[in-house]
Design a protein around this nucleic acid. Sequence first.
DNA 1: AAAACTCACAACCGCAAATCC
DNA 2: CGGATTTGCGGTTGTGAGTTT
Length: 223
Amino acid sequence: MLSQYKGRRSSSMCPSTMGRSPCCEKAHTNRGAWTKEEDQLLIAYIKAHGEGCWRSLPKAAGLQRCGKSCRLRWINYLRPDLKRGNFTGEEDELIIKLHRMIGNKWSVIAGRLPGRTDNEIKNYWNTHIKRKLIARGIDPKTHLPIDGCSDHSALSSDRQTVSVAAAPQSEETLQPSVENRLQTICFCYRLGFQGSEACSCHKSYAKSFVSFQYPPLEEGQQA
DNA sequence: AAAACTCACAACCGCAAATCC
DNA sequence: CGGATTTGCGGTTGTGAGTTT
């Protein structure tokens, strides 16, 4: 999912329904694959009213779906900025590198791949990349050689020092602490993709919903 | 030609976090 | 402040399409 969807609570929260009626009434909702008509209703509604308040959206849009289902359909399939199509080799490698560093944080990984969704990346990982890594002799879970590798230190240090700030933060909270001398920069920068299309560090990190803290790479160290 | 099997991906489920009242 | 509710995330499942036997 892209950065604008980051954070447990967003401005899209609907105040009028917050903390009231029970969650989605499943008794009278459609399930399974979406029809073209349902897609059109959802697209038309969001074009007219924008995203937000998923709870009340289905009724307002004339859909017999729960809000959760509408949100998922829009984010994963109907959004106009989705890229679709095959993943490029560069995207493959970026996913592998990010996964090695942060694990199954699909939404964070998706935030670094413009036009890709967390669900898409998760599926792609499970169907393609896992096998690709196994074929390379790499365990897709640990990113270590399958035949056993003694050097766990690099990976563990990566994992330990990466902290994920999942929610939007103020500029102050994103400032690196002086004490631990960490640098706060975007992943692409650390991975050497700065300036690429996937890199967002040309934008102020204060505006980014996701940031990471980790020590700067030593000279010659691989990300 | 058709049954069995495999693959890819859309959609669902359950939980945790965020927020409101 | 705590309970109630919504939203968002990651894991899992269902199913249609493609391939093999």
